[in-house]
């Protein structure tokens, strides 16, 4: 698994591989994030920083708390304790839609196509600051038509990029699982986020389409955005991530460049200590 040293990766070259380590230019900084379900501590993260402009992978065995951490950070669940800042703004008290508007946009483990809407509308919905989304302005088309044309043009660009421009008018419910993953990715980009959080972007996708998806994910980084993603396929993690954070039982147990993490005894213990003989750990929550 030889990958050229990207600028993103070289920035992290001097960062010591240990849990909670500080990064040179973090876009997301979280402290003391805790979430308990009854007696179970689902998430207990002391400190986490995500370096701007990199692809950071979040790995860990079943029930490690990765998706719960995603839900907490994006406002889809409420933490029992903790504070975190995105681009210098504290966001732990914000609602999910407010978090998205600050530039932190997530996708879901179970892909969420909007099946009753056209493929094009599945993308245009994500554009921010739409005048026609205000109740009274909605009634007067000239107020929002010009902006709507610009939004549609941008959406067509994104559809082109994922090779689905011929499907623009189809209902999204007619798409295959892999196409829905691509659509969800394009939708998240339409929101112009600075941090894209992908929850298992390649789950249930065939190998050929997985490679396409990975190309798109690295492209997201090349356009100056930051990517944080949950992944189970270690090949994928090794191939595209600049930095890997490993969770187990709610805590961060290791952090570092992919190759270091791949050889970390704590990580191997966390996985193999529970799942002997499984190469791919399919998580279902």
């Amino acid at each position: 698994m030889n990958q050229p040293t990207t600028p993103a990766r070289s920035v992290l070259g001097d960062v010591e591989p240990r849990p909670g380590v500080a990064k040179p230019d973090p876009i997301l900084v979280a402290d003391g994030v805790q979430r308990r379900f009854g007696g179970l501590s689902a998430v207990d993260v002391e400190h986490l920083e995500v370096q701007r402009g990199t692809i950071t992978a979040l790995i860990g065995p079943n029930g490690a708390g990765k998706t719960t951490l995603f839900n907490l950070l994006t406002g889809f669940d409420r933490a029992d304790a903790g504070e975190w800042a995105f681009d210098g703004t504290r966001i732990e008290k914000k609602f999910a839609y407010q978090v998205a508007r600050t530039g932190m946009v997530r996708t879901f483990q179970l892909t969420k196509a909007l099946p009753l809407m056209s493929v094009l509308d599945n993308i245009t919905i994500a554009a921010g600051d739409q005048r026609g989304e205000h109740f009274l302005a909605a009634l007067i088309a000239p107020l929002w038509r010009p902006q709507e044309r610009r939004i549609a043009a941008r959406a067509h660009e994104l559809l082109d990029a994922i090779g689905m421009s011929d499907k623009a008018d189809d209902l999204a419910g007619t798409l295959s699982g892999g196409q829905r993953k691509l659509l969800e990715l394009a939708r998240s980009i339409m929101a112009e986020p600075s941090l894209v959080m992908l929850d298992e972007p390649t789950a249930g996708v065939n190998p050929a389409l997985t490679q396409t998806l990975l190309t798109h994910i690295t492209d997201i980084r090349e356009t100056g955005r930051t990517v944080l993603f949950v992944e189970h396929d270690m090949d994928v993690v090794m191939q595209i991530s600049d930095w890997v954070v490993c969770m187990a039982e709610g805590r961060i147990i290791a952090e570092g460049p992919p190759r270091v993490i791949g050889a970390d005894p704590a990580v191997i213990d966390a996985y193999l200590g529970r799942h002997h003989g499984e190469k791919h750990l399919g998580e279902k929550q």
Binding site: T74, F76, Y97, L114, L116, I125, S188, M190
Partner: peptide, 15 residues
């Protein structure tokens, strides 16, 4: 329409 299909998706894109 997005809310009718899936509320969480609408939230995730800032609605």
């Amino acid at each position: 329409n997005a809310i009718r299909s899936d509320e969480d998706t609408a939230r995730a894109v800032g609605k």
